[in-house]
């Protein structure tokens, strides 16, 4: 049971961090080779999928982490607190990106609004999105460091 939970937690964490690294190291530089209109289409599709994948990983991490603690986990308080804070920050960032910032980056023309204003509004949202994506990656990497810190083992609660 504990091995299984540890495996699942490691896997969920790996998928999450790997996805964030992929977006930063593969997708972001790739955008230079794609025409702006197609970048918008791709961002829309990828953003939707990434949001669901990230949220699924976060929900699964919470479930397996809680199950592990209930199974007699015994994490040090500072580590449990650090992991919970990282998890909470990631949920807030993913929800903020998915529900607020991402839709704004694909906003439509409002009545009485000119195209230049719409473009500025979209560009502001894209800049905020960039900052949030980097913050998400930094928090995920920091959370992983908290997880491996005391024993130098796997990132799960079952270390």
């Amino acid at each position: 049971m504990r091995d299984g939970l540890g495996y699942l937690f490691t896997l969920e964490w790996a998928v999450y961090v790997g996805g964030a690294l992929f977006m930063e190291l593969v997708w972001r530089p790739l955008q230079r080779h794609v025409p702006p209109q197609q970048t918008g289409v791709l961002c829309n599709s990828m953003g939707r999928r990434y949001r669901w994948l990230a949220l699924a990983c976060l929900v699964a991490m919470a479930a397996t982490g809680a199950a592990w603690q209930l199974d007699g986990g015994g994490l040090a308080a500072w580590r449990a607190g650090g992991l919970a804070a990282a998890w909470g920050s990631l949920v807030a960032l993913v929800a903020g990106m998915g529900l607020l910032v991402h839709p704004r980056s694909h906003a439509r023309l409002q009545p009485g609004e000119d195209r230049a204003a719409l473009r500025r509004r979209r560009q502001r949202a894209i800049k905020v999105m960039d900052v949030m994506l980097r913050a998400e990656l930094a928090v995920a990497l920091l959370g992983a460091l908290v997880a491996v810190w005391p024993h130098g083992s796997a990132p799960g609660p079952a270390i």
Binding site: A14, V17, G18, F22, V26, L53
Partner: peptide
């Protein structure tokens, strides 16, 4: 762990996010 995450998470992102 970063190496594992990059390999596994990157492959899944390639398959499930960029591919479609």
């Amino acid at each position: 762990l970063l190496a594992v995450a990059t390999y596994v998470g990157g492959s899944i992102a390639m398959e499930l996010i960029l591919g479609p």
